[in-house]
């Protein structure tokens, strides 16, 4: 049995199935609590019958600061996926999709223009996953990641900034068909 619900801080003591996976980025406790204190509805978990957390998504809503508003890289009010992880034993069940849909529902309720996220250019599985959910590449952030998982000699690795429009963006003005052709530098990204 898998149930979905909003995160609560006591879940942190049941994160081991997700966070011991070496591919899952882990954070200090204050980082999780900061997200919970600011954006509780954007922090959702999947729980098994024993109370273990077998997947979670953590996100935020934001826009670029005002001083950025005349920049071509200005980000309007949107939601951002900071972390999405599913325990290895619970993968291929669609848990990641359900969690993402829940975050999108909250993003819609917050009247955001889109949901975005960053993913390594080499992470084909994740890119396919997000594309299947309606996300597309909006731009390429050059050398966004300090390391390169496939080439340790490389400077870093590019990130795809992927987006999915929310209900507010009726004319789809915040997405692009040719996002892979648009390169930006890390300092352009808020």
């Amino acid at each position: 049995m898998t149930s979905f619900r909003a995160f609560r801080p006591s879940d942190l003591d049941r994160f081991s199935k997700c966070n011991l996976d070496p591919l899952t980025e882990t954070y200090d406790l204050s980082f999780y609590l900061q997200y919970y204190s600011k954006w509780p509805s954007l922090f959702q978990v999947a729980e098994d019958e024993n109370g273990n957390i077998i997947g979670y998504i953590m996100g935020k809503t934001e826009s670029s600061p005002d001083y950025f508003q005349y920049s071509e890289h200005y980000l309007p009010w949107h939601a951002h996926i900071t972390a999405l992880t599913v325990a290895p034993e619970a993968r291929r069940l669609g848990i990641g999709k359900v969690l993402t849909e829940k975050l999108e529902a909250s993003a819609d309720a917050a009247d955001t223009w889109f949901v975005d996220l960053f993913v390594r250019k080499s992470n084909d599985n994740a890119i396919r996953f997000y594309e299947s959910m309606g996300y597309s590449v909006y731009r390429v952030v050059k050398d966004y990641y300090g390391d390169n998982v496939n080439d340790p000699t490389a400077h870093g690795e590019d990130a795809y900034d992927m987006r999915k429009p929310m209900k507010r963006d009726k004319t789809l003005k915040h997405i692009r068909d040719d996002g892979r052709e648009h390169d930006v530098q890390p300092e352009d990204v808020f």
């Binding site: 942190l12 049941r14 994160f15 081991s16 966070n19 011991l20 954070y27 200090d28 406790l29 999780y32």
Partner: peptide
């Protein structure tokens, strides 16, 4: 190898 850190410390 588990790299127990951060939020897992209390429980593990």
């Amino acid at each position: 190898h588990y790299d127990v850190k951060n939020a897992l410390v209390n429980s593990l």
